[in-house]
Amino acid sequence: MSGILVATQLFNGLSLASIYLLAALGLALSFGLMRVINMAHGELLMLGGYFAWGTLGLVPGPLGILVALPVAFLGSAAVGAVIETTLIRRLSARPLDTLLGTWGVSLILQQAARDLFGAIGVEVRAPDWLSGAWTLGGVTLPSARLFIMLVALAVLGALALLLRRSRLGLLVRAVNQDRMMASACGIDAGRVDLAVFCLGSGIAGMAGVMLALLGPVTPNVGQGYIVPAFLVVVMGGLGSILGTTVAALILGLFLALSQIFVDVSIAQMLMLVFVIVFIQFRPQGVAPARTRALDA
């Protein structure tokens, strides 16, 4: 086992973790607020990929991908808004029913993408400045993957700033801590839910743009990333950005490093076992929300 192999897999793990993080942030934030998981979240990634494809068709040139990021953010956020207002809001008191209802949305979105764009998928050509690679001590670092990590870092920074410094962040933290008390203070918790859900959906859309850089955008491209993202949420703890980030790093690195020894299907099984073992020690996740509530 050579050092270069380990270093390459470390790099791949970090890039994988970046995508898991972008996919899981929205899930974790909404789960913290509303205790519901949107099973159609993977299809918001897929939509982001198609938004990238559409934008690059209209805006060719080296900077098209930078235009695609806000387009995918807004597009996926808008679809997220529709899902939240029409379905999740009606079901938020029943978390398990929300899983099933949003799974229905996911089936419909996948089939719609298949009918509109074809089952084979579409290819997004990365601009020249993203298709090269850097080499560092014998390790190849593809520019696209470096770009993905940069975007993930930027999103993480912006989100942390938003939650700590902005008025919306204050409201989100208030509802997160105690929904009833926040409502009693005059905060419209429903609007906070919607804002956070749209934000998370938009981030998923940006993650979709990143997926488009790595491979063809297919109707079920989101499915491959969403199950690990769910596990990131399970490991991360309720609505904590820090916990989600750490969990995404752990799982991304775990999956990449274990592939030094075993193939990807075994690595996936090991990752699941790892998560189950992990919750034996920290059932509340990496960064548990401190609460005195019995039924958290």
Binding site: L96, L231, D263, Q268, I279
Partner: peptide
């Protein structure tokens, strides 16, 4: 470990994915 029902559902889904992938790859 008193993990919530939503977590349980997500973990069972990961189990289904891992099981099917394992069978396909072997």
């Amino acid at each position: 470990r008193r993990v919530s029902g939503t977590y349980f559902a997500l973990i069972t889904q990961a189990l289904a994915l891992a099981f099917a992938t394992l069978i396909i790859s072997r």
